[in-house]
Each structure stands twice: as C-alpha cells, then as structure tokens.
C-alpha cells in the first residue's frame, strides 16, 4: 500500500527512526511558526495597554512614559527576539497588570489545569475505549444503541448547561459534591480530587462521546477486513477478534482523536473553569485579554500551542510506530 509507506525510500534500513525524527523536527518548526503568529496577531490587535491602563484622560506624555517603561517603543522584531530568548529560558517576562513574573503565576495555574485535565483523561480515555469495544461487540444490539444514544445526548448538551445541571443536582440538591471547585496550595490529593469531582465529570461528558464514537467507527471499519473473516473462520471469540485482530489495526485513528480531546481538555476548558470557579489557565488567559496584559496572553498562547503540537506529535508518532510495515521494513 503506497499510502502507508509514503516517504519511505527504497533500501532504507530505519524508516521508522527517520520518520519519527522528521516528525519531531516538524513539530519544533511548527512551534516557532506559531510563536510568530501569536506575536504578530497580538501586535495587529487594535488598542494599546498604556491607554487602556491609564484611561481616556491620560496625557500623551504619561502614555509615552508608560510605553517606554514597558519597552513598547522598541521595534517589533527586537521585542519578538527578546521575548523568544526569554521564553526559551522559561522566562515569560513580567505581567503588565500585576507586575509579577508571568512564569511564576502560570506555573501554578498550569499545574492546576494539568491536574484537572489529567484526572478527566484518566477516566474518559479508558472509559471511551471500553465503551467503544462494548458497542462493537454488541453491534446493532441493545448495549450498542444505548451507548450511542447516551453519548449523542452528552455531546449535544452545551458544556455550561451540563456544568450547571451537575451543580444543581450533586452540589445543591443531593449535597454530595463541593462547589465552587476552587483548589489552592496546601490541599492534599484526596481533598483536591473531591473538590474537582464535578468539573471532571463535566469534562468527561464533553470528550467521552467523541472518543467513543471514533473508537467504534475505527474498529467497525477494520471489522470488515478479510483478515477479520479469517479470524472468524478460525473459530475465535468475538471479543478476541476485536481486541487482537481489529484493535491493533485501528490504533492510528483512535490515537489521533484521543490526542485532539486531550488537547481540548487542557486548552479548551474555559467554560468549565468559569462555571466551577476553577483557577486554571483558561480563566487566567481570559482575564489577561480583558486588560490587554500582553506578556500573559502571549505566554498562555504559546503554552497552549505547545501542548497542542506536542499531543498531536505524540499521536502521529504512536501511529507511525503502530504500523508494522515501518517497524519491520522488508
């Protein structure tokens, strides 16, 4: 199949290593390109921090003064290079609004976000794959229909609505869960898990259906392969056919959709964070945008982009490694 081995040269002894290295290099190049886009995009935005901060009545001298203080009088290219040089060392500059180091503030917020996403992923990914396998095993029968219907319902409800429903029932009516889901330093792990239970449930609802349906579709498309018929004619059980003969050949599409959803869990959770008053990256970035706190917005944008690129790269590399033609060249 030429499409699967595209990019593999004849006589190449290590196509796998070459493809992986190429994918890594591509990711780094992509990240730099995105950094330019983020910087250029914010540069092109109307409005200016100094006028917003000082108010309409500020004197031109005061505005110029503040601009000089923030380095805004420098040419864009210089500021970009300064910013990148700092970012490569992990220094994202100083927040214009709070006057504190951005890296420090982000560190706390990012670990909160990653914690929330991590817990949601740890539940939703295995659950999605399990439900996908179950629905293929009982294809077109009651379990499959129920899973499909439920997941369709979950994906159709807006996430803020799911969030408020959860708060209404579990926090207010039943008083089982904590609201707001605000975590702070010094909280123990169990305490944290209890606090994030509701937002995690909301997130699982949002991403589960997508991953489950893709798992189902990918498995079903492989289930019509001749080698699955071979397995049937070898008298294998339905579950063994799905797990051993279909699943290894459905890895690539499943991993890709999982990566997209994991990325969403980190960078797309603003709504859930706001609903549950969770101190994560999303809320932090939204706050920074309202006051035009550029160093914070840029840093958030770059980190979000890095997470997206990293997860997608990981998915691609797993898909490459899962291809036996590349792992074991002729």
């Amino acid at each position: 199949m030429p499409s699967q081995t595209a990019g593999v040269r004849r006589g190449d002894r290590h196509p796998l290593a070459r493809l992986v290295v190429r994918r890594l290099a591509l990711s780094i190049a992509l990240l730099f390109a995105v950094s330019i886009l983020i910087f250029g995009g914010l540069e092109a935005m109307p409005g200016d921090f100094a006028t917003t901060y000082l108010g309409q009545s500020a004197t031109p001298a005061a505005v110029a003064n503040l601009r000089a203080q923030l380095g805004l009088d420098q040419p864009a290219a210089t500021r970009y290079l300064d910013w990148m040089a700092g970012a490569l060392r992990g220094d994202f500059g100083t927040s214009w609004a709070s006057r504190g180091p951005v890296s420090e503030q982000i560190g706390q917020r990012l670990s909160n976000s990653l914690f929330l996403a991590g817990v949601a992923a740890a539940i939703s990914v295995p659950l999605a794959i399990l439900l996908g396998v179950v629905s293929v095993r009982f294809r077109d029968r009651a379990p499959d229909r129920i899973i499909n219907l439920a997941s369709l319902a979950a994906i159709s409800l807006p996430e803020f609505f799911v969030g408020y429903l959860l708060i209404l029932f579990f926090a207010i009516r039943l008083n089982l869960a904590t609201f707001p889901a605000t975590v702070h330093e010094g909280m123990g792990l169990l305490e944290r898990l209890r606090v994030v239970a509701l937002p995690v449930t909301g997130l699982v609802f949002v991403v589960l259906a997508h991953m489950m349906r893709m798992t189902r579709a990918a498995l079903i498309s492989v289930m019509s392969s001749p080698y699955v018929e071979t397995a049937e004619l070898k008298g294998l059980s339905a579950l063994r056919i799905i797990l051993r003969h279909a699943a290894p050949n459905a890895v690539a599409p499943i991993v890709n959709v999982i990566a997209l959803n994991l990325a969403y869990l980190v960078v797309g959770v603003v709504v859930i964070e706001v609903v549950f008053v969770y101190p994560g990256m999303g809320q932090y970035m939204v706050d920074a945008v309202t006051v035009r706190d550029m160093p914070v917005v840029q840093a958030c944008g770059l980190i979000f982009a890095a997470i997206y690129i990293f997860l997608n790269m990981l998915a691609d590399i797993i898909a490459i490694v899962a291809n036996p033609r590349l792992r074991h060249p002729r």
Partner: peptide, 11 residues
C-alpha cells in the same frame, strides 16, 4: 482464502 495477502492480519 483466495487472497492470503488480505487474509493475514498485518499487525
């Protein structure tokens, strides 16, 4: 099967 190439699991 007729086409063993398709009837063997590539994985």
């Amino acid at each position: 099967a007729q086409s063993a190439a398709a009837a063997f699991n590539p994985a």
